[in-house]
Design a protein around this nucleic acid. Sequence first.
RNA 1: GCGUCUGUAGCUCAGUGGAUAGAGCAAUGCCCUCCGGAGGCAUGUGCGACGGUUCGACUCCGUUCAGACGCUCCA
Length: 588
Amino acid sequence: MKTLLELITIEMKDAFVKAGYDEELAKVTLSNRPDLCEYQCNGALAGAKKYHKAPFMIAEDVAAQLKDCPYFEMVDVVKPGFINLKLSAGSVADYLNDMAGEEKLGVEEEKAPKTVIIDYGGPNVAKPLHVGHLRSAIIGESVKRIIRYKGNNVIGDIHLGDWGYQMGLIITELKKRQPDLPYFDENFEGEYPEEAPFTIGELEEIYPTASAYAKEHEDYREEALHATYLLQNGYRGYRAIWQHIMRVSVADLKKNYENLNVEFDLWKGEADAQKYIPDMVQMLKDRGFARYDEGALVVDVQEETDNKEVPPCMILKSDGAALYDTTDLATLVQREEDYHPDQVIYVVDKRQELHFTQVFRCAKKTGIVRPETELSFLGFGTMNGKDGKPFKTREGGVMRLENLIREIDEEMYKKIMDNRTVEQEEAERTSQIVGLAAIKYGDLSNQASKDYVFDVDRFTSFEGNTGPYILYTIVRIKSILNKYQEGGGSLEGLKVRPAENEYEKALMLQVLKFNDVFEAVYEETAPHKLCAYIYELANEFNKFYHETKILSEEDEEKKSGYIALLTLSKRVLEACIDLLGFEAPERM
RNA sequence: GCGUCUGUAGCUCAGUGGAUAGAGCAAUGCCCUCCGGAGGCAUGUGCGACGGUUCGACUCCGUUCAGACGCUCCA
């Protein structure tokens, strides 16, 4: 179904044309003066010059054409030439009832669905997740759900960091600790053990130990680099260790992402892209895209319109090894081969923008992707502590993700136990649900591209613009609806009735905006606008609730209208938080 | 040095070339025997600076100041 803005715009265009003006002027927007009107059109102001006519007169001409339009209860022409509109209560109720009849609440699906790959998450195998991975997971997941809701074919790919130096480090450290393992025996030809020679706990300890040691000891570092080289060139024993590392680590990662309510469709990694590298390099050489510069193989990506120097894309180091650029390009080769995506979106730290500019240009220039493929960089800012500096533990180290989450959950648990008497088990479960909402909402309510301050106290608060406040509102609605049903009422078949007071109408208008807001969120990939929307929706509901006796309303017709409005409000809120990647508990 | 991004209320953040720039937190004062007060209402303070474009600028364009970040063989 069409959004309300689309419907009004059609009417407005019609009015402009009938009055003898260009329909391009008939742009309708939400009012920025809610005290005066609900929707507005400023076209008369813009048209004044073109028609050498006072904007006020143009506005009056147009308004005269709208007099009989059934949507409006008020069409006002004001001062310089604003056209102010108020919707009739009847048409609002009708629209909401139509909306309630649609699975996607009035959002129109893409007529030509695109295949979109979203590259997010990007954890490194064998290294614990830390707060740096949080934003990519949260934002990427939400973006994935938003694009999917619009009816596109969306594929979320975790893009594991599973092929680097850290693997060599782990192998080297393992060899130091357990030199007798068959993996290190060059003459071993039998089957390697099924069981990994380490647990996830040990693995998480091995990497930082080895990494620190390598920084101090040159020969150890050399050995790790050599181990990396051997692994990448297919040495059987190291390959087997790699398999073990992958299995143990991926199982752990899956658990962690599941706790975050983050789901990937693909668990591909850098290692999967390796086999595409030789042919790709050959192609780049054969077709003359690549050249040697100081021993390294590079592809120039500088463009004439650049007002700065864009360094070439580096394909092979002077020692012949592949790099970051190479792997990302090879991954595009793979994605093109497997999925022919119309768009690939990278949800990564904004500091990597230059790198992706290079990769995108190189991929386009060399035909690795089709010319019409859209390559998008969705860079996010740094998560800072209250001091405005990158988030650290109290000791100044890197904060592990699970510790951060535990801290939030404990805070939530305390608050829940303080406020209600609930079973410990339920309180724990609820605090996890609410805690996750606190983290995600705290993150997503900021513009992704900006740095933001992660403030545990603020995010976990039940007051103000927070995840818990949103959830609280949903839970409150659920509670009312449950009581209504307990009293013998059914939620089926109820219709929203025309609003009778300003609070009711304000809530209706806010609910009704959902599909218009969604379009903006989708077009701009801007989850923070969805947060702003549900915050306002929650506020409008709470004001309405405060002014209205719902269950004790004696007029049954009226009461059923309220219940229908609440049911729809709840559906919209739940759809929105699902798009943001969290959910509401039954009680809290 | 070159480049990119960010400067909005005491703090954390919104803001679509349009009317009087908004929220939350914090502060102060009100409202409640209520379907969940974890609410509602009210009060005060602000677009880094200077120019320009425009009928009209927080928004577009310059200059400048401040901060963050990035600038071929790490990822």
